[in-house]
């Protein structure tokens, strides 16, 4: 109950942000939420033991699917997000049947290659995608109303967070955890390993697709170079690692921490901030390899158990 009130407090704080924060902070928060969702989606795939570098690829596919569906098919921008999710999921389903037979480094490299392949395809379909110079939408989503955009992204992020929590609670949690630990034992516990891998790959790709769509609708612009940018691959990974992998809180904290730091650094030193930013990531991973969240949780639990011990010993007297 305490926990629910605690979470509710944060949700309300986040939802009412436009009322007390300025335009700049709102924009920073929007960006952080986008990366938070990407980071969570990457982490969910990692929980199955598969290191995917395909996020940027599906993000890009979603971005283009959303833009094309709005400008060529003339559907509502919000609906186009569903289209982006379905399109990314569909591609992930087809590709997944081949790629998910690979493991470890082979899987990682192939997914990285996929992202590059998507980019090349997009560049060459210039009638539809505008080729390498990109394409512009006549208007951003909600007419560019940044408050509504923020709420939309917050809504999607909350759903992603709930999915991530669900994944750590339900029967799927057993399947995913055991596949990561030992695939043969997972199979001999009656788990259809391939089915679960495809399932997770498809829905994490759908999340990446929908976020790609939102991003495009926010800026009303796509370009292969920026849409398939490594930023959408590496930053979410860094956030999950810094925050703590295999958890929901980890990527959330990582995204907020790195998101705020990168903005702050940009302000105090317009040149060279990326250097410091990289340094911070390296330092955190070197000294807190389990991530901020797990270290904090351990500290908290230790203190709690010490308190319990103290109570017990004082009762003894």
């Amino acid at each position: 109950m305490k926990k629910i009130i605690f979470y509710l407090f944060f949700v309300i704080m986040a939802a009412t942000l436009p009322y007390y924060a300025g335009g700049y902070l709102l924009h920073v928060s929007t960006t952080i939420l986008i990366f938070m969702s990407l980071s969570l989606s990457w982490d969910m795939m990692l929980r199955t033991g598969q290191l995917s570098f395909g996020n940027a690829g599906f993000f890009g596919l979603g971005a283009y699917a959303s833009l094309i569906s709005v400008s060529n098919l003339d559907i509502h921008p919000v609906l186009s997000l569903f289209f982006a999710a379905v399109f990314a999921a569909g591609v992930a389903l087809v590709v997944g049947f081949a790629v998910l037979r690979l493991r470890k480094i082979y899987f990682a490299i192939t997914t990285l290659a996929l992202a590059l392949v998507f980019e090349v395809i997009v560049m060459n379909l210039s009638d539809l995608t505008g080729g390498s110079s990109g394409r512009v939408l006549p208007q951003a989503i909600f007419g560019g109303n940044s408050v509504l955009i923020y709420w939309l992204i917050l809504f999607i992020t909350i759903i992603v967070i709930l999915i991530s929590e669900l994944l750590n609670k339900s029967k799927t949690h057993y399947a995913i955890n055991s596949i990561r630990n030992d695939e043969i034992t997972a199979r001999s516990s009656g788990i259809n390993v391939f089915k679960y891998l495809v399932f997770v790959f498809v829905f994490t790709s759908a999340i990446q697709g929908i976020i790609g769509g939102v991003y495009t609708q926010q800026y009303a612009f796509v370009m292969p170079e920026s849409t398939f940018s490594l930023d959408f691959l590496l930053l979410p990974i860094a956030m999950a690692l810094v925050g703590g992998i295999y958890t929901t809180m980890g990527p959330i904290l990582g995204a907020i921490f790195l998101g705020l730091i990168s903005e702050y650094l940009k302000l105090i030193m317009p040149y060279g901030h990326l250097f410091i930013y990289g340094l911070i990531i390296v330092i955190v991973i070197l000294f807190l390899p389990e991530g901020i969240y797990k270290v904090a949780r351990k500290k908290y639990r230790n203190r709690k158990s010490q308190e319990v011990k103290l109570d017990a010993s004082s009762e003894g007297k």
């Binding site: 057993y174 955890n177 630990n181 043969i184 034992t185 259809n192």
Partner: peptide, 22 residues
């Protein structure tokens, strides 16, 4: 299985429940 193939970061009860979950 040989070599105690358990799921070390799950609790004893979770390990057991996994045996019947699927």
């Amino acid at each position: 299985p040989q070599n105690r193939e358990l799921f070390p970061d799950m609790t004893v009860k979770e390990n057991l429940k996994l045996g019947s979950a699927f």
